[in-house]
Design a protein around this nucleic acid. Structure first.
Length: 272
DNA sequence: ACCCAGGATTTCA
DNA sequence: TGAAATCATGGG
């Protein structure tokens, strides 16, 4: 088992906050797949122990280069954020693979986290490359484009099957689209993502934030909408609310969003 | 049985 | 242009 000294970091908060759906608890750590390889990770402060990937791959995926102290100082603009930062300290926005991230959030719409995890598990199980008896890599665009819409529905995707099918067909033929997106500005990348059927403002923002390093993206889902309405008095539409958030929280608004999201879900009853 | 979910698209006034 | 209906399905 290899190990690296981790800066302020919480593996649990980062993997269980709802930004990613492919890891499963295994003993006192987590098992998952990184760049097509089976990986196991566990945290024993101050060490992050891992096997199956290189130290650079781990550092990059878990974004250990993000300066959390700087980010916290920028987003802690009110008591609510300070509380969320305290409660979910060490939560980092990961660098997910854009393709898997996009499919994940295509599936996420109008659903809930347990069910999303199930859909994605079904996709891996049925169309991914097996790595061992209970681990499958997430299917590549080519693998997923071989699935029929009906098969995707059988994985529990419902009406989202059509969206995923069309998306997979397109990406399979335009392999390098995501490489280009990383180089674009947040606004341009978001705009291009939204040209795909089924990708609207919220899904595009999630892909930008969680896989394209656009840390100023501010996805607004049902939870964030409640927070913005009940706690910040913003009842306006998506664009204006997101603009308000970026102005309030600054260039790391995406981090503020994820901490608020985690905070809101942990307080679902008192938030209502 | 009911409401909701990390929404987006289509339809209709 | 903007609100309302519709989409497929499972968790709570």
């Amino acid at each position: 088992m290899k190990k690296i000294r981790a800066p302020p970091f919480s593996l649990r908060n980062s993997l269980e906050c709802g930004q990613v759906f492919g890891w499963r608890k295994h003993g006192d750590g987590y098992a998952g797949v990184l760049r097509g390889k089976k990986v196991f990770v566990r945290q024993r402060t101050p060490w992050l122990q891992f096997e199956g990937a290189s130290a650079d791959e781990i550092r990059n995926y878990f974004a250990l280069d993000h300066d959390l102290n700087e980010i916290y100082s920028k987003i802690s603009v009110d008591d609510r954020l300070r509380q969320a930062v305290k409660e979910f300290g060490g939560l980092r926005i990961l660098r997910q693979e854009p393709w898997e991230c996009a499919v994940s959030f295509l599936c996420s719409q109008n659903s809930n986290i347990p069910r999303i995890e199930k859909m994605l598990y079904n996709l891996r199980k049925r169309f991914g490359t097996p790595l061992d008896k209970d681990t499958q890599a997430f299917p590549s665009p080519a693998q997923l484009s071989k699935a029929t819409e009906k098969q995707l529905q059988q994985c529990g995707l419902g009406y989202r099957a059509k969206y995923v099918k069309k998306f997979a067909d397109h990406i399979a033929r335009h392999k390098d689209d995501f490489l280009a997106l990383k180089k674009l500005s947040y606004e341009k990348a978001r705009e291009r993502l939204m040209n795909h059927l089924g990708i609207g403002p919220k899904v595009a923002d999630c892909v930008c934030l969680y896989s394209l390093e656009k840390l100023d993206a501010f996805p607004i889902d049902a939870w964030m909408k409640k927070v913005l309405e009940k706690k910040y008095g913003k009842k306006e539409g998506y664009a204006k609310s997101a603009e308000f958030a970026r102005k309030r929280f600054g260039r790391f608004a995406g981090y503020a969003q994820l901490y608020l999201f985690a905070w809101a879900r942990s307080k679902r009853h008192s938030l209502k």
